[in-house]
Amino acid sequence: MDRRAILRALAAGVIGSGIGARPGFAAEPPPETTRIRLNRYPFDVACVAPQWVAEELLRAEGFEKVEYVSIKGDGDLMAAGKIDMMFLDAPGLIQAVDEGQALLGLGGMHGGCYELFGNAQVRSVLDLRGRTVAVSTKGRHAFVAAMASYVGLDPRKDLKIVLTPDAKQQFVEGKVDAVLGFPPEPQEFRARKTGRLIVNTTADRPWSQYFCCFATGNRDFVRKYPVATKRVLRALVKAVDICAAEPDKVVRGLVDRGFLKDHDYSLQALREIPYRRWREYDSADTIRFFALRMHEAGVIKSSPQKVIADGMDWRFVNELKRELKG
């Protein structure tokens, strides 16, 4: 069975059972543009799998040209207008809004993802005092700063956070004391018994009570194409539910298509990520929580209220929560 047939079968079997089209969808106007650009990575990032699963769902929403643009990390290309929509972690999104980048957070897609690992001397976040943590993106840097601030550490004085593309390898080689892993890195660390798990944001409070990744759009795209924006977001949340219901089929398909390389670790990641929380959690609560921590840590200058006012638009996801009741 080819990937389109697989996705059609998944859509029919999963979406049809609980989140299929409700009356009124057919009456919606067509998207103002039939081209949509999302992102992909040259390395494995398992948690954003819904973006790639959504391809045929996007075509069903009226997008004739679905493009995947390769990026290496944060949302700079989207802010520059090279990508229309992508998943971005909450701290990275908040930081981008604080910097004035042309992005809009549209709604939380799932919780979990990040896991903090330390060496034998690190047993808690408080043990990071005087130590070095490696991270590979600005969003991860902000996340570690938020964790430190939450337990009373000043990330500007009490620890060193190193931004480096080889964060994982530096930790494995013992060059740093801790690292913030992103799926499927934590799954590999656990399998190989690398380091000690300090924080699992899927299970450990307060982090498990909030979203990790947000659907985020280029601001000009969202404002110019509101119908298209809602249609993209609908395809994405349906894909989120497909990932929750059929992780085995999803991972096999994405490995076959070249979006993922490691099957086993990626499959474990999809089984662990709480995808269905997009219906349950409040996006604004997550932004307020992280923005406050990041403001306390000196990572951003904006207040949580200003971040939400300047860089968030919940109307689409709120409509979809009402329309796609599972």
Rank of each mutant, 00 (worst) to 15 (best):
V66P: 01
V66A: 04
V66H: 01
E67M: 08
E67S: 11
E67R: 06
E67K: 10
E67H: 09
E67G: 08
E67V: 13
Y68M: 15
Y68P: 14
V69H: 13
V69Y: 10
V69C: 14
S70I: 15
S70L: 15
S70R: 15
S70G: 15
I71P: 08
I71N: 08
I71Q: 11
K72M: 11
K72T: 07
K72S: 09
K72H: 11
K72V: 06
K72N: 11
G73Q: 03
G73C: 07
G73F: 01
G73T: 01
G73H: 02
G73A: 08
G73V: 00
D74T: 02
D74H: 03
D74M: 06
D74Y: 03
D74G: 04
D74P: 05
G75V: 05
G75N: 10
G75D: 08
G75Q: 08
G75E: 09
G75S: 13
G75L: 10
G75W: 03
G75K: 04
D76R: 13
D76W: 12
D76M: 13
D76I: 06
D76T: 09
L77S: 15
L77Q: 14
M78F: 07
M78G: 07
M78E: 08
A79T: 05
A79H: 09
A79Q: 11
A79D: 11
A80R: 14
A80Y: 14
G81E: 11
G81R: 11
G81C: 13
K82G: 15
I83T: 12
I83Q: 08
I83D: 07
I83G: 09
D84S: 09
D84H: 09
D84R: 05
D84Y: 06
D84P: 06
D84A: 05
D84F: 05
M85I: 11
M85Y: 11
M86C: 11
M86N: 06
M86G: 05
M86W: 02
F87Y: 09
F87T: 03
F87W: 08
F87P: 03
F87D: 03
L88W: 04
L88R: 02
L88C: 09
L88E: 06
L88G: 03
L88P: 04
L88A: 05
D89K: 03
D89I: 03
A90M: 09
A90N: 06
A90D: 06
P91C: 08
P91K: 02
P91R: 02
P91S: 07
G92L: 01
G92W: 00
G92V: 00
G92R: 00
G92A: 04
G92Q: 01
L93N: 01
L93M: 09
L93I: 06
L93G: 02
L93A: 04
I94W: 01
I94H: 01
Q95D: 11
Q95C: 12
Q95V: 09
Q95R: 12
Q95H: 13
Q95F: 11
A96H: 01
A96V: 03
A96L: 04
A96Y: 01
A96F: 02
A96C: 09
V97G: 00
V97W: 00
V97T: 04
V97C: 00
V97I: 10
V97D: 00
V97M: 02
V97F: 00
